[in-house]
């Protein structure tokens, strides 16, 4: 994309050697700015990463950037400690237990609704969809008290189903919106042909629409998974102080409030929580960006 043919790229024309050198020099400030920004953007994460391998006393007395001056002293003890003694190991499992099922539920429920919104004609379809669009930006804060009371009444606080259901519901407006926009753009002839050949709506949904929507489903899945993985608020409210079900975000935030200056713990705990999102991000960046672009309205 960076060649001269790209939109708003540098103009492409033959140039002499001196011209090229002049151009390269004149573009110096440009590179300086971009590289500077990139370095600035990496510094905070790099600092966290480096510090997570340093000992408690070193972190407290010297800046992490001095760690590269010999003698090099790094340790894995911090990780060992947070994963076992500080519950980050259990929390990692809890985060998986929360995010994976809730992501799958969201996709299934949203895909069903999106199919109806795009391929079944019924009275009030547009009005109902506008409700979904309106719900896109409703802050979940508006729902916390009544839902918490409901869960308390049912004895569900501190259970995984409580967060699965809540996460699924909160993710639905965005998921339905995204999938409906994708489904409705599928060629009409394909669906009509399937109906003529004897497909029911359910067959058309499972055999035609879903297989053809893999890119959209993947984008939504990744986006939703990361969103849930990174959630603090919902887990904090509905899982409350139940440590045995707390995901990593909750555990880290309680580490911050009880060990605010124990940086060897905080840095390694934070990095544990970042490993999976970073892998997902770098491996599936394309889908993630597609999800972002499709859902630029989500709050």
């Amino acid at each position: 994309m960076a060649d001269g043919g790209a939109a708003y790229g540098a103009p492409d024309r033959p140039e002499s050697r001196t011209q090229r050198i002049v151009r390269k020099l004149s573009r110096g400030p440009l590179h300086l700015v971009i590289i500077g920004v990139c370095l600035a953007w990496m510094t905070p994460t790099a600092g966290l990463f480096v510090s997570s391998f340093r000992t408690r006393s070193e972190i407290a007395t010297t800046g992490w950037w001095t760690a590269f001056v010999p003698p090099l002293e790094f340790t894995l003890e911090n990780y060992q400690h947070v994963l076992t003694a500080r519950g980050m190991g259990q929390s990692f499992i809890n985060s998986v237990m929360i995010s994976v099922p809730a992501t799958l539920f969201t996709i299934i429920v949203a895909a069903l609704a999106a199919y109806a919104f795009s391929w079944i004609e019924f009275r009030g379809r547009e009005a109902l969809f506008l409700v979904v669009v309106a719900l896109l930006v409703v802050p979940i804060q508006l729902t916390l008290i009544p839902v918490l009371r409901m869960y308390a009444g049912l004895g569900m606080t501190g259970t995984f189903p409580a967060v699965w259901l809540a996460h699924t519901a909160y993710g639905l407006p965005f998921a339905v919106f995204l999938l409906r926009n994708f489904f409705i753009a599928l060629p009409k002839d394909l669906l009509e042909s399937a109906y003529l050949e004897g497909a029911s709506h359910f067959v058309a949904f499972t055999r035609i629409v879903m297989p053809l929507s893999v890119p959209a489903l993947a984008a939504l899945g990744i986006f939703q998974f990361l969103w849930l993985w990174n959630d603090l608020l919902v887990a904090l409210i509905y899982l409350g102080g139940f440590r045995d079900v707390a995901p990593m975000t909750v555990t880290i935030s309680s580490l911050v409030s009880s060990f605010g200056s124990e940086w060897h713990l905080l840095t390694s705990a934070a990095f544990v929580s970042m490993v999976l999102p970073l892998i997902v991000f770098f491996a599936l960046q394309k889908y993630f960006v597609e999800g972002i672009l499709a859902g630029a309205v989500k709050g």
Binding site: P187, D189, E192, S193, E197, G198, A199, V203, L212
Partner: peptide, 26 residues
């Protein structure tokens, strides 16, 4: 009835064999 569409409406994710046999399978 059977219909041939202007766009042909072939299912892009199925082989030709599955495309032709889809209606029979259903």
């Amino acid at each position: 009835i059977a219909m041939v569409f202007q766009s042909y409406a072939l299912y892009p994710h199925m082989t030709i064999r599955d495309n032709i046999g889809f209606g029979l399978k259903l």
